[in-house]
Design a protein around this nucleic acid. Structure first.
Lengths: 225, 225
DNA sequence: GCATTTCCTTACGTATGCGTTAAATGATGC
DNA sequence: GCATCATTTAACGCATACGTAAGGAAATGC
């Protein structure tokens, strides 16, 4: 657990972080309902900061408020995941395009290339968690280089959903060996300032990932419904 | 004012709506700071529902919470508007693409064509407000036809920012006579199922709009700083 | 038996009060 | 005269209490 030094954090902040953790850990299952008072008790605080955190998490698309029905952890249907991936594809491709145009020095692309290298290592070690972590870093750094803060925020929200879906699908996927070739192509295109290639390569990369995940989710759904 | 029948609305809901109205009316000026207690008094309610509304509006990118500094109405710099337009361009183009692929019947495209007609009328009448209204409807309907709820949500948020910027720039713009030609091209492409044309035409349309608005904002800024 | 209405339970919505803390102002030492 | 520190003040964070309304159960009428 990354219990970062939370010297003095407001209860709302704590509620926000801990609820997120619980959601991503699957501790609060997709589709499950919860009462304010229940969550407040779990977090050992009063309802007020919980309400505030829940409001923020609703804005982030992780929770759904249904007064007197409970607070629902938003489910992840294959259809939802298609939506999420389409937004991701579009905005990350834009970021790749902008990053390529921005003429970054090789120095600035260090994090990007490190993430790619880490993925190679992770694949060699068959370490899916490490791979997923490095993949996240690659995509985070890509949008950062794109230089559009709103794109960053939105992509971050969508990535959260992908991360949730990965909980149920990562272990069933084939090792993403092909994936890193794409990453390198995108990296080189950005380094060379080739916006068109960066954009289109990344687009193809994401569309491919989308089809895999959605397919897995559909099959998974079939087995459990 | 659209004082829709608010038979029994919670105070939070009311705070949300009324604060939005005040923001869009410029009653709460971009960049201005306000206290919770001040807003609570204005709205004639306690701080609690105000806090909740403010939290939601922060998630929508309209307010910025700066504890002990005040609640700030987010300013609209030309740079912000560039970001907003880039996101809009990307996601609306996606929506246009999807809408074209979806093979909608002409019936389904009624709202779209009506909005275009209304813009023609508005331009003939030199009625900028009516034009802006119809333009909003066109874009709203376009993303609806795209069929991706998340795209709709995000585009709606970005459109809010554009609407705010329009407050200060609409009156200084030339009549957007050219603009409606673009709308018709997009409409026809969607009707004919030509996704590529729909996407690219719309993209060009938005990029053009972006350059105009950003330019105006920059000039406006120069005169007032 | 089934539908309708009433009552009851309980979660939520909001006001309120108090403790906390951060910004501001003044005091003190150098 | 300036910097640092203490003091003050006021806005916020949070707990708590209470009113309210929604959903369900039970009772009553048909």
């Amino acid at each position: 657990m990354n219990k970062v030094l939370h010297k003095r954090m407001s209860s709302s902040q704590r509620a926000l972080l801990e609820l997120r953790e619980k959601i991503f850990a699957g501790d609060l299952a997709p589709g499950s309902d919860h009462l304010e008072s229940e969550l407040a008790e779990q977090l050992n605080m009063s309802r007020t900061p919980v309400r505030e955190a829940v409001l923020m998490l609703e804005g982030q698309g992780l929770l759904e408020l249904r007064p007197r029905k409970g607070i629902r952890v938003v489910p992840l249907s294959p259809e939802d995941m298609e939506e999420v991936y389409d937004v991701l594809t579009e905005l990350e491709s834009l970021a790749a395009d902008c990053a390529a145009r921005a003429a970054h020095k090789e120095e600035d692309l260090k994090h990007l290339s490190e993430a790619i290298d880490d993925m190679d290592v992770a694949i060699a070690n068959r370490d899916l968690d490490a791979w997923a972590n490095a993949d996240d870093r690659f995509h985070t750094e890509l949008v950062r280089l794109g230089g559009n803060g709103r794109v960053e925020t939105i992509v971050h929200m969508m990535s959260d959903q992908v991360r949730r879906a990965r909980l149920t699908t990562l272990f069933m996927r084939p090792l993403p060996t092909k994936s890193n070739e794409d990453h390198r192509l995108v990296y080189n295109a950005i380094k060379n300032g080739d916006a068109k290639v960066a954009r289109e390569t990344h687009r193809d990369h994401r569309m491919h990932a989308k089809s895999i995940i959605v397919e897995l989710l559909r099959r998974h759904r079939l087995r459990f419904l």
